[in-house]
């Protein structure tokens, strides 16, 4: 039964222009880096180094897209009342939740996975080296990371009572845990190296 919800929800989500735009931004960014890395990166050109090159972009953009996909999955339908139309049909709460999660992760995961594989091909061709196992693990981790953020968005969507609250708390989480920690980490590093505790 979750398949029906997933299809239904996929229709509703992919139809949204902002979602399409953001997923494209993520995918094109990855492809662009795949193109630039062999030109700019340090030798030797391997997929192992490329993953380091692309990680920052993915960690930066994926949380925003994941939250954006997840935060209104339930709360907006509950606010408007269209959730009732699903609840009075023979769907369990669990099916609705699973369907929503899949309906929203599949477009993101497909775009991210495809972009990474294409970017990997750009790195390998013509002079690069493919470390298959290593790269496959990286793609898998990136996909899990995307699912994680959609799940966080969905969790927020279930637990709050209005779309506005979902938006605020949804975006507070990546702001604190991704961008915030990132900045603190950098500040600490700069501080440490300027005081000479660490070098480089």
């Amino acid at each position: 039964m979750w398949r029906i919800i997933a299809t239904q929800d996929g229709h509703l989500t992919v139809g949204s222009r902002s979602v399409k735009f953001l997923i494209s931004v993520l995918a094109f960014g990855v492809l662009l880096l795949g193109y630039l890395y062999p030109i700019q990166g340090t030798n030797p050109t391997t997929t192992a180094h490329f993953t380091g090159f692309v990680t920052e972009w993915i960690t930066l953009v994926t949380p925003v897209i994941g939250i954006l996909l997840g935060y209104n999955a339930v709360v907006s339908e509950r606010e408007s009342g269209s959730l009732k139309l699903s609840l009075v049909l023979p769907h369990s709460r669990e099916d609705i939740l699973l369907g929503k999660l899949l309906g929203r992760t599949v477009p993101l995961v497909t775009a991210l996975g495809a972009a990474l594989i294409l970017a990997g091909a750009l790195v390998v061709y013509p002079f690069g080296e493919l470390l298959l196992l290593n790269f496959a693990v990286f793609v898998l981790v990136a996909i899990c990371y995307a699912i994680l953020w959609v799940s966080i968005g969905l969790a927020v969507s279930i637990s709050v009572s209005s779309k506005r609250r979902a938006l605020v708390s949804g975006f507070a989480i990546p702001t604190v845990f991704v961008y915030g920690l990132h900045s603190i980490e950098r500040a600490v590093r700069v501080g440490l190296s300027s005081t000479g505790v660490t070098s480089g």
Binding site: H11, L12, G15, G81, S82, K84, V88, P90
Partner: peptide
Amino acid sequence: RNKIGVLPEGYSVFDRL
């Protein structure tokens, strides 16, 4: 719910469908 048909109150239709 598989055996019944329901017209609830306080619903809204799906926007994009």
